[in-house]
């Protein structure tokens, strides 16, 4: 799709096999499991921070799902919010109108998002480059408009409020629930990008013509990748609807599609965990600014724009790319 030229050094995703890395990862996971219990002792601010970290986890999942097609597939989608929104509305509608249990609704969310991705993707993968981007934007805005206009089904611009939450899901439990789902998804995605499927996807990104010459069914692989990314985004959307206890048209809006792109770019789109780093960084930055000075959040969009500008001009590899570069320099 869009021709993404890569720095050969950050080009190939190497599974971190070093023991040191494994220990660090395990420690990090343990910290994240303990975190809510520590925060719960801090009273109201603690609950607020549990909520924030839960949102970071969900938005990271969303960003990582986009990065499957953006960073690994080289397909720049401006309409990824479509699947996030479909997932959110699926959970909200099933739980509110059909009184479905949480797990059933959360299982339906990626499924419905995948169905949407099957249809939208079938059209979109026929196009390349800029045209692919514009068509994904058109489809997601189409869904946004439908949700906006269809009052009886989606509640129009009021959205769907008061999604029921099962009693056992206290903020801490919901955090843990999301964390477990997130880790499972990371594990799945990690297997995916290191499988032959993942290698094929990256081959297509690097050189579509050569991929065709060696007999790869390019469209089919891109379609499949698009559907998988859509399903993960749907799951993220479903969790987000449950976190906020509402679904609204804003979930489908183009500005929502921009968030995972920003996170991927800031974190680094050529690595699996880059989008997670980016999401967490942007979210924390926003809160830090909010704490530092209330008025600063007024200028959030400008600050975000300036960060993006600096990243595009000086560090297109993102934060992870920057760190890798520094480590490389250190080692000679």
């Amino acid at each position: 799709m869009l021709n993404i030229k890569l720095n050969p050094e950050t080009n190939i995703y190497e599974p971190e096999t070093k023991t040191r890395h494994r220990v660090a990862t395990a420690l990090l996971i343990v910290v994240f499991f303990i975190l809510p219990f520590v925060l719960a002792h801090l009273g109201r601010t603690g609950v607020y921070w549990i909520w924030v970290t839960t949102e970071i986890i969900i938005m990271s999942l969303f960003a990582m799902s986009l990065n499957l097609i953006l960073g690994f597939g080289g397909m720049v989608s401006f309409g990824h919010a479509a699947f996030f929104g479909v997932g959110a509305y699926t959970v909200a509608l099933l739980m509110k109108k059909a009184a479905a249990p949480l797990l059933l609704a959360l299982a339906a969310a990626p499924l419905m998002a995948a169905v949407a991705a099957v249809i939208i993707g079938w059209f979109c993968v026929r196009l390349t480059g800029l045209y692919f981007s514009i068509l994904t934007l058109a489809f997601s805005q189409l869904l946004y408009m439908v949700a906006f206009q269809w009052y009886t089904f989606t509640g129009g611009d009021d959205g769907l409020h008061g999604v029921p939450r099962p009693d056992f899901l206290s903020p801490t439990n919901f955090y843990l629930f999301c964390l477990v789902i997130f880790l499972i998804c990371v594990w799945l995605m990690r297997m995916l990008v290191n499988s032959s499927f993942g290698l094929t996807i990256r081959t297509i990104r690097e050189n579509m013509d050569r991929a065709k010459f060696i007999g790869v069914n390019v469209r089919f692989y891109q379609w499949l990748n698009f559907i998988i990314a859509g399903a993960f985004a749907g799951l993220a959307g479903g969790l987000f609807a449950q976190l906020n206890r509402f679904a609204q048209t804003e979930f489908l809006h183009w500005s929502r599609s921009a968030e995972p792109i920003l996170a991927s770019l800031v974190g680094g789109m050529y690595s699996l965990m880059g989008p997670t780093v980016g999401s967490a960084f942007l979210m924390c930055l926003r809160i830090v600014l909010q704490q530092a000075h209330k008025g600063l959040v007024e200028y959030w969009a400008i600050i975000l724009g300036l960060i993006l500008l600096v990243m595009v001009l000086f560090a297109p590899g993102g934060l992870i790319g920057l760190v890798q570069k520094i480590i490389k320099k250190k080692n000679g």
């Binding site: 993404i4 969009a301 400008i302 975000l304 993006l308 500008l309 297109p316």
Partner: peptide, 20 residues
């Protein structure tokens, strides 16, 4: 540069200019 970076640059401008 590649298309993606160009798009993101103009998108960053949208964020800044609209907010201004």
């Amino acid at each position: 540069q590649e298309h993606l970076l160009q798009l993101l640059l103009t998108y960053a401008l949208v964020l800044i200019l609209d907010d201004l």
